[in-house]
Design a protein around this nucleic acid. Sequence first.
DNA 1: TACCAACCGGACGGGGTCGTCCGGTTGATT
DNA 2: AATCAACCGGACGACCCCGTCCGGTTGGTA
Lengths: 183, 183
Amino acid sequence: MRTRRENRGRNAAAANRVALIGAAREQFASEGFDASLSAIARQAGVGQGSLYRHFPDRVSLALAVFDDNVTALEALAATPASTLDDLLALITEQTAASVAFIDMLHASDEDPRLRDVVGRVRDLLDGKLRAARHDGRIRPTVTADDLLLAVRMVAGLLAKSVPGERAELADRAWAMLRPAITG
Amino acid sequence: MRTRRENRGRNAAAANRVALIGAAREQFASEGFDASLSAIARQAGVGQGSLYRHFPDRVSLALAVFDDNVTALEALAATPASTLDDLLALITEQTAASVAFIDMLHASDEDPRLRDVVGRVRDLLDGKLRAARHDGRIRPTVTADDLLLAVRMVAGLLAKSVPGERAELADRAWAMLRPAITG
DNA sequence: TACCAACCGGACGGGGTCGTCCGGTTGATT
DNA sequence: AATCAACCGGACGACCCCGTCCGGTTGGTA
């Protein structure tokens, strides 16, 4: 929460943008994708006007927040040493950290920008899956869509649970799902 | 949606109650546990006042709606011929039919009445699980809590999906989870 | 210094919900 | 017919959110 005096004037734009993204990250994390935009502006110490000037709609704000997440996933996947399990673990960690990221993974929403995010995640899973088919013990019938389904199941479980219990719940959930993947 | 004239007067109470439960069932099904109470009263063709007179709070209305669901589950479980799979199938069917029932199954909520509902479901799963340990092929380490976890995973998946896709999604989800149960 | 483009905060209108409160209707009872 | 307990619908005040609009501030520039 920034003070209200320092963010006026000509070159406050960049700082305001950063503050908005930070506040949005927190609100999205706890409240989900439908978090109140007013609350985000409030927490950022910024007027409603500035919020809408920087981010014309809720989706563009969400993309600014969660692009970091997907970028981190892509960076991990690009490391040849990283395994499919590593990737699933990071996704799980990210979902545990933010209800809105869970919401984005489901994206039954119509906005194509949100579907693109899911597409990127799916592609990463697909890539690692192909690599793992050779290296590890992967059940041959498993598809990338199956993996995405599993991710969504775990995510949906975490969505409606107390943050403190998420890590343990995720472990139990993956313990049940892993046999279906590794055979 | 009832007409507005027939539900005045001294003995309209019972009819209003029925209309409210019906409207609530529909609204809860599509909007989830947080459905608008105003909308429910509106759809029932009943004033706000009557809604709150019959059901002082949202939970009591939800209980009136979903007691039927749990009763049906208990009836099925009481049939000796019914299997654990039958029970899981009916639960899945009920969750697919109502977002609010999904919400109730998670009940990270503090209200003890909601937790009781989950408790009843858990007990049913526990009973059938014990029976199935003798009859069918059940992995011995599986507990009732594991089953509840699986149910919640599938439910959480269905919660954020288009109703039309739910049946197929549920099938795929259970296909992945079944190995963890039957071993 | 005087100007002004760029940017800002927050008020505002429109819309929704919640829960309460009350005047009005109904029909059983006397 | 007169009464009145039981019950009803919906208005109402308090609250919140969304998205726009505008007067006000800032600081670079001439």
